[in-house]
Design a protein around this nucleic acid. Sequence first.
DNA 1: TCTGGGGTCCTAGGACCC
DNA 2: TCTGGGGTCCTAGGACCC
Length: 407
Amino acid sequence: MKRRFIVHIDIDAFFAAVEVLLDPSLKSKPLIVGGLPHERGVASTASYEARKYGVHSGMPLRKAYQLCPNGIFIRGNYQIYKTFSEKFFHLLSRYTPDVEEASLDEAYLELTRCRPLYSSFSRTVREIKQEVERKLGLTVSVGAGPSKLLAKLATTKAKPGGFFEIEPDREEEFLRNLGIESLPGIGPKAQVILWMLNIHKIGDLWTLPRATLHSLFGLNGDELYLQSRGIDSRPVTSVSVPKSVSRETTFLEDLWDKRLLLAHLAYLCDRLTLPLRQGGLFAHIIEVKVRYSDFKTEARRRLLLTPLQEMEKIYRIAQDLFLQLFSPSRLSLRLVGVKASGLVRSRPLSLFERYSERQERLGFAVDQVREKYGFGSLLTVREKMLESLYGFEKKRGFILKTASLTK
DNA sequence: TCTGGGGTCCTAGGACCC
DNA sequence: TCTGGGGTCCTAGGACCC
C-alpha cells in the first residue's frame, strides 16, 4: 500500500500567543490565560515564559499563582480565539481539501491525494508553516508522518516552533524510546496500570500480547496494541456535525438557593440553544449535570421521542431533571450544566405540531435582536438571577417589544 | 494545589422482549 | 416458588483530549 503523507499542525501556546498579538507589551512575559489567580478554575494556556515556572495548561489557577506570583493572569476571550482559528483553517484549506479540525488550534492535513501538485512534500510543509506564521503572526509546530498518530507524535518533537518529519522505515526507531504517556488515550489512570507492569516506554509495550492489553483496557487495549506499533489507518476527515453541545458553569462560590440555581439553568439553556438554531440542529437527548460541594458529580438525562430546539421546551425538561438531583437538604452545588445530544439536522413533521415553526421563528428573532444590540446571552449572571424574580414571560415580552420597536 | 469548559468514546447494569 | 439465554435499548458514570 502506498505510504500516506499526513501533516499535523499545532499553534504554539495559542491563547497566550493571541493575547501577545493584541497587546505586544505582554511579549516575553509569563502569561497565564484562563482566569484570575484567586478564581476557581485552571489555566487554559501558559506562555513559554510561564512554563519555566512549572505552570502548564490544566493546572489550578491558585497553584499557578503560587508557582508564578509575578505571572500575568488573563481571563481570555474565546470569540477572538475563534476568529483566529477560522483564519488558520482557511489558510490550510488552500493546500488540500483534506483538512481535519482536531481542535481550535490543531489540524491534520493529508497531502497524499495532492501528490501531483507538489514536487516535494517536505518543501510544501515548510511553505505552509511559513505562510501561516506570516499571515497569522503566530508560531506553529509541525509534524509529518504516514499516519495521524505518527504525525502528531512528530509534532511533539518539533515543539516549539519547529518541523519534524518521520521518514520511511524510521518509525520503529522513533517510537521505541518515547514514554507511553505520549500515546493519545494514555491518561493518568492507564499510566499507573502500565507502570505497575514495568511498562514505561512505547517499546516496552511490544512485549505485551494483545490479549493482555485487551483484558486490561478493553477496546482501548486493542487500540494501544496497534498504536504502539505505529499502526493507525484513521482517515483525515474534513467536515463533521457535532455529536453534542453543552454549557456549564462552576460558580465562584457554592450555591444552595433553588431559585438562583433554576435561573442559572435557564441562562444555560438559553446559551445552549443558540448553536442549535445556528446549526439547524434538534436534540433527542437532554442531560443535566450537577457537581456537589464535595466534587461528586451526578447527571440525569432524558431521551425524547421528538427532538427539540426551542429554549422554553428544553428548559422545562432541564428543570425537571435538575429537580431530580437537587434537594435543599443535600449539599450545595459548585456546578450546574446542561447538554443536548442525539443531534439531528431536521425534525420530522408531526400532524399534531402545526405551530412548531412559530417557536423556532421566535428563537431566530431573539437572536437577531441580540446580534444587533448585544444583550440576551450577554446578560450577566447577576442580571439573570434578578430577572428570575420577575419570571420569563416578562423578559420575553420585553425583548419582543424591543424587536417590534426597531423594525 | 481544592480540582474549567467543551467535547468524544466506552462500559456496566437494568429493563424489556422473545 | 427457585425460574434460561440472547439481543437490544436506555441510563449513569468515567477516562480521556485540548
